[in-house]
């Protein structure tokens, strides 16, 4: 399970993607899912949630999680997805 080689230079790393690019991705994805953040206040520390904090959280998430998971390389003949691994282990014990 070796690491993948680094992406070619023309592909920016997740750290190099700009806030503007990420914001466009986030807003597009949320629009496609039918989710509207505009009902939140834009920037209000006293509100339970505001657009500024939600967008900042989303950018941090996108800069870390998808890339880290994508980097973990499997043998194509490796394990299939198992969302209930403990049960798979019990079922396979015979």
């Amino acid at each position: 399970m070796a690491r993948r080689p680094s992406p070619p230079p023309s592909v920016p790393s997740s750290q190099e993607v700009t806030d503007e690019q990420l914001d466009a991705y986030i807003r597009t994805r949320l629009a496609l899912a039918g989710v509207d953040l505009s009902v939140l206040p834009e920037d209000d520390e006293d509100a339970p949630a505001d657009q500024r904090r939600i967008m900042a959280s989303a950018r941090r998430f996108l800069r870390s999680t998808p890339g880290a998971i994508a980097e973990f390389e499997f043998d194509p003949m490796g394990p299939p997805p198992a969302i209930y691994p403990a049960e798979v282990s019990a079922w396979n014990r015979g």
Binding site: I69, F74, G78, P79, P80, P81, I83, S89
Partner: peptide
């Protein structure tokens, strides 16, 4: 991929 990783971890 993350769901495959669970089985590797287990």
């Amino acid at each position: 991929r993350g769901s495959r990783a669970r089985l590797v971890l287990l």
